[in-house]
Amino acid sequence: MSVLVAVRSRRVKRMPAPALWAAAGFLVLLVVSALLPGVFTAADPLRTDIGEALLAPGPGHPFGTDQTGRDVFARVIYGSRYSLAIGFGATLIALVVGLVIGSFAGLMRSLGDGVLSRAIEIVMAFPEFLLALIVIAIIGPGEASLLVAVALAVIPSYARVARVQTLVVKRAGYVEAARTLGVSPAVTVLRHVLPNTLGPLLVMATMGVGTAITAAAGLSFLGLGPKPPTPEWGLILSEGRNFLASAWWIAVFPGLVITATVVSTSILGRHLQARSARRQR
């Protein structure tokens, strides 16, 4: 939803450079921790040690330990793998499918466009999170379901932007020119329409990764994602919920990392948006 709003507003302020570097740096760290978690922590995210249960953050355990003595920092580091995979995976699926549906609707005349637009409109009447929940109801809980549910929930937003963008691009001078020069419709669409539709969608997708990560964490917080003891961010938070009175760190740190991730993707997305807005002027 925040994605839509951001794409719609015309005047975009530039992001300050330090914020941009911090955001990019954080995301790089996150990707490294997803690929090579061993770089950041020597601890095993699954090793329990009752003697070390519920230790406050300190040397050795920067984020403290949980009820079974597992290192929360290690769990958050190893958890980045799931969240990033779902965040990027779901966004990529939504982007591709949304682009196909949207440009299809935009290129077709009257009837096809009418039916598709109506369908998109109706699905968009639903809050994304509720849509994701309904998808989970149909396909059942689990890691793969999270990815599919989050992707399906955001496809309508991408499809809508893709459709509007296609309608704009379709009337552009260069498309007209290509057609006049006798370029076949298929080639025109692939070479001229699609690439120009993609731009705004990519900006949207950059911000969408953060939204997808939050949504996936929310679903798994509700117990609809991976099963314990998987070190997934939403799952760690839901386990931490039961120990808020004695050990706030179990829930607070993973949430902080999610927030930082989403803030970073938003900053990058807005930067891209500001750049493309400047280029258009």
Binding site: F221, G234, L244, A251, V263, I267
Partner: peptide
């Protein structure tokens, strides 16, 4: 605004409970 928009709802709830409740 950016932080408010980016924070997961359930996490905000947990933080508020920790701070104002406990």
């Amino acid at each position: 605004e950016l932080v408010a928009v980016s924070s997961p709802t359930f996490w905000i709830g947990l933080v508020l409970i920790s701070v104002f409740g406990f």
